[in-house]
Design a protein around this nucleic acid. Structure first.
Length: 421
RNA sequence: GCCCCGGUCGUAUAGUCUGGUCUAGUAUGCCGGCCUGUCGAGCCGGAGAACCCGGGUUCGAAUCCCGGCCGGGGCGCCA
């Protein structure tokens, strides 16, 4: 048996020198692995000389061997036979990559690239990537085609939400607030589509769960029998993502101190009217037809959790509280929200696919059908019954990583104040 | 946009209520030294902040008052 030789490139996260031995704690390019690089004066005077002068935060390449006998209690021990410093910091690090001295969220965001050397930060963004790939995996195995719709749009999607305006060769254009209208138009030619996409919203909110640029998983499916079919896909998607993260990201979850439990299935279907009853019993005064505010959502979340449900659908919303493209069922609608512990993760529903009814809905909402002609045209050529949902990717990652603020799970968040970096 | 709280060495904080004793304390990081198995290393020494910006009160302001900017939280807004 001989020692295995290795090449290791990464950053020095901490240095401990004990007499003629230098211990470098090194992390690699992205995993959660930690290496303890050992350099002894007696064995390698030249390398030791260099190692004892190295600065925390330096980017280095090590060549060395992995000894049979591992003494280090932390990380894989590597005995360096060569050490090359590729770049060293020219300023004090803006935060402690080893995580001993805490950093405020604002400091982390300002220096996210350095913060990513902290185990917890890596864990969050590794989980984020796993969530995205697990979602793709599930949707593709269910016959959904990934599509990419425009983010520069000539018309505001549904009216209502505030849009970012921009100049498009002298014409007025907007950043897409949602792929809603485009994914529906696609239902005239493809039966199942999905898109991982940014949503741009110019709302001046400042909360722990809103951003002006956020990411969503948008799904639309045609030839459906009922709205239940859509909820089935959404529930399956959520369940698959949780299961996948649990399966492949145990180290990341450990690093975050998160014990992830998969949501109880089947998800409870809570009627909007039932939700109002619950709220009434909790002392809230809500008139039928009103949308639920965040305080109400949280109260329902707590109530449902006591009943044993972390994830639940709220169904049968009043149509008045929903957008024009949602199918009407008298005073009610074929729309649903998916909430997880009081946080809205997704909303969706069956759409109105009949041309005349759709035009009528637009009018009822006080909008002008002419403004939607590019969209309405798609409903003239054999549009099947269809529906879908938009699932907030940031919020899903937030829930899985048990982050308190949505900014924690977005590398460079865009909020009202933050435009750089 | 409204309400509450905050802004002090690179980082994280103490100090502010009860103005002077703060030439601003501590931890970590940083610099120098000692130590051949540290692993939140240890020990010794050192540098580092006129306290977000502007104005005011006062003999005297990190501390009190006003405005602005920024941060955290709550609400509103939210296809």
């Amino acid at each position: 048996m001989s020692a295995q030789s290795v090449k290791l490139s990464g950053w020095v996260n901490s240095i401990r020198a004990v007499g003629g031995i230098v211990f470098l704690e090194v992390i690699d390019g992205g995993s959660l692995d930690i290496y303890t690089v050992v350099v002894k004066k007696s064995r390698n005077p030249e390398v030791w000389q260099r190692a004892s002068k190295i600065k925390t935060g330096s980017a280095i390449t090590i060549r060395g061997t992995i000894p049979e006998v591992q003494v280090s209690k932390r990380g894989l021990e590597v005995h360096a036979t060569n050490l090359e410093v590729l770049a060293e910091p020219i300023d004090l690090l803006p935060l402690d990559p080893a995580g001993t001295t805490p950093a405020l969220l604002d400091t982390i965001i300002e220096h996210r690239y350095v913060a990513l050397r902290m185990a917890k930060q890596r864990a969050i963004f590794r989980i984020r990537a796993i969530v995205a790939s697990a979602a793709r995996e599930y949707l593709e195995s269910n016959g959904f085609l990934e599509v990419h719709t425009p983010k520069i749009c000539g018309a505001g999607a549904e009216g209502g939400a505030t849009l970012f305006q921009l100049d498009y060769f002298g014409r007025r254009a907007f950043l897409s607030q949602s792929p809603q209208l485009y994914k529906q138009m696609l239902m005239c030619g493809i039966s199942r589509v999905y898109e991982l996409t940014p949503y741009f919203r110019a709302e001046p909110h400042s909360t722990i769960r809103h951003l002006n640029e956020s990411w969503g998983i948008d799904v639309e499916m045609g030839f459906i029998d009922s709205v239940e079919e859509i909820m089935g896909i959404l529930e399956g998607l959520i369940a698959h993502v949780f299961a996948r993260v649990k399966e492949v990201a145990s180290r990341e979850l450990d690093a975050l101190g998160v014990k992830l439990s998969e949501p109880r299935r089947p998800f409870k279907h809570l009627d909007y009217s039932e939700a109002l009853e619950i709220l009434k019993s909790l002392g809230f005064e809500i008139d039928w037809g009103q949308d639920l505010g965040s305080t109400e959502e949280k109260a329902i979340g707590e109530f449902m959790l006591k009943e044993g449900y972390d994830a639940y659908f709220i169904v049968n919303y009043p149509w008045d509280a929903k957008p024009f493209y949602i199918m009407r069922k008298g005073k009610l609608s074929a729309a649903f929200d998916l909430d997880y512990k009081g946080l809205e993760l997704a909303s969706g529903g069956q759409r109105e696919h009949r041309y005349n009814e759709l035009v009528e809905n637009i009018r009822i909402k006080g909008l002008n059908p002419d403004d939607f002609s590019f969209y309405l045209k798609a409903f003239k050529y054999g549009m099947p019954p269809h529906g879908g949902f938009g699932l907030g990717l940031d919020r899903l990652v937030m829930v899985i990583t048990q982050s308190q603020n949505i900014r924690e799970v977005v590398l460079f968040p865009r909020d009202r104040q933050r435009l750089l970096p």
